[in-house]
Design a protein around this nucleic acid. Sequence first.
DNA 1: GACCCCGATGAACAAACGTGCAAGGAGACC
DNA 2: GGTCTCCTTGCACGTTTGTTCATCGGGGTC
Lengths: 328, 328
Amino acid sequence: MSLADALSQPDKTAEALRAAQLYYVQDLTMEAIAQELHTSRSSVSRLLGYARESGLVDIQVRSPHDMPSRLEAAFRDRFGVTAHIVPVPDHTSDIDRLERVALSAARFLGSVFDSNMTLGLAWGSTVSAVARHLTPKRTHNSQIVQLNGAANTRTSGILYASEILHRYADAYGAYAQQFAVPAFFDDPSTKLALWRERSIRRVLEIQRRMDVALFGLGSQLSGVPSHVYVGGYLDDADFEALASAGAVGDVATVFFRADGSWRDIPFNNRASGPDLDVLRNVSRRICVVAGAAKVPPLLGALAGGLISDLVVDEGTARAAIEQHDAQS
Amino acid sequence: MSLADALSQPDKTAEALRAAQLYYVQDLTMEAIAQELHTSRSSVSRLLGYARESGLVDIQVRSPHDMPSRLEAAFRDRFGVTAHIVPVPDHTSDIDRLERVALSAARFLGSVFDSNMTLGLAWGSTVSAVARHLTPKRTHNSQIVQLNGAANTRTSGILYASEILHRYADAYGAYAQQFAVPAFFDDPSTKLALWRERSIRRVLEIQRRMDVALFGLGSQLSGVPSHVYVGGYLDDADFEALASAGAVGDVATVFFRADGSWRDIPFNNRASGPDLDVLRNVSRRICVVAGAAKVPPLLGALAGGLISDLVVDEGTARAAIEQHDAQS
DNA sequence: GACCCCGATGAACAAACGTGCAAGGAGACC
DNA sequence: GGTCTCCTTGCACGTTTGTTCATCGGGGTC
């Protein structure tokens, strides 16, 4: 359900609105609503589905402020971060886990992003997963900017960068700002040259002014090297270089260590993503994390102050807190 | 479900919160949630009911701002008032109509009222009906103040003033400020004398500082004199005096004319409610109206600028706009 | 006009849900 | 310890809801 679709059918929207009022506010049954609208119950069911899909009805669960979960309090105390813990049974597969976290993240993003804002998107499987669950929301004068160049598209289930960007822009009625550069450069000087181009500098300038950043964490370095980046961008030598530099993960192609440091990792001058100082200047830095494999990069990102709001599944959150407490 | 109850059972609240997350955010079925929580599906159903009742989950239907209903636009254009039209089939009885409008009003009030605010309540059957549908919401340092003295309690289905006040205070965790005076004075000088008392002046001072006012409209003067006020407070002579003064209705015992004027209605110096200038200084003045009989007082209140937000059923709204347009 | 395509519709079915009810359990009082 | 009361639980049932499917009707195309 795109915003354009929603606008193309004002009567349908009006009826859906009416049905939603009657159903969600006045607690009528669909049967009763069908009578009022002179249609069949099935149509009412569909109408309500449409109302939910298109964001006409907004359902949010809010914990009373005086009783945040123990885990959320732990993140606040240790890292000064607002955590949004997604309850997930422990035996859930990593794919389901990501899906459920992404769903919560999408709702949260919807409540944060608004008119006159700029949203920066890191390109990766996590941000792609969130894209699948966005709820439309009308905004004005807002834009979406891509934070790092696109990796290849052969990797399973990950959408094209432009496709992702378009989904966000469509859901929020925002202007999409592409960033047409490779994910990683082979030669740092190429990057420097490109960064002097006016078309690129314009994008960099927009990035610098973003109000909200949304990103996942790369964890290619922990344990077995994942194949995600093996598509012509990183080779074995690169991985070795990163490993020997002590990198534990990346945000938008920029790598950092367990202690949150990143400035002196040479590899980063080949990355297309924004300097992490730029990121740290953003007021809302929403990090979406699912799966225990991401605990090391998560702790690094937290140490580096890269995160202001964290959406994470319960198990990973618990593991992160335990590991942090064990190390300090 | 009172706020006190909600606090007395933190584990229940926590479980309800979890269930609500899984149900409303992650779209799991109750069966699945039951498994995660190691309980039966029925319990989950009840848990979710509790979560809704106690305001843990907040469902709101919001019209896209670019497409308000035609009626809402009409109210904005003609009176500068934000209208909240409650869809109700035309053949609905006045009692059902009031009930459905009150439900919407309660939800709206919940979205407006917050910490550090003072809410003024006119005492009447409409405000009483709203009380029945309040959703709990936690606030701090807020208070509820009664705007006018209590009429008698013999009239059907209307709660005691203190009972109403208590419901609001309980739902919002606010301090309740009673106003122990009669609805109408026989002798204006009694009122003047009482108004000099420090205990009364304290309440009047609070009234003067309120941020939100919630009131219905009295329509005792249109057509057949209703028996609502016939409880020892108003007699035939009073009604005649009001009729000859041109009064069309009242807000919190203070009467006004069709053109919105009220200052020179002698009867008002016997009323216990606040001067309408005090009311007009309140930033949110929420008026709840149901039933076509209230069209004349509604138009008067609109003319007098007494209303900032209007919650009204569709039929009455349409009638009011039609009548206004016909007269001008 | 004939044809096709696509989206909308209501009937029918299966899944999901709310609630009355009886059983069980914890505490209060005797 | 008995027992009385009140609250909670899970089951069973009837109701409500989501979804599939066949059908219909309104454009667009030849």
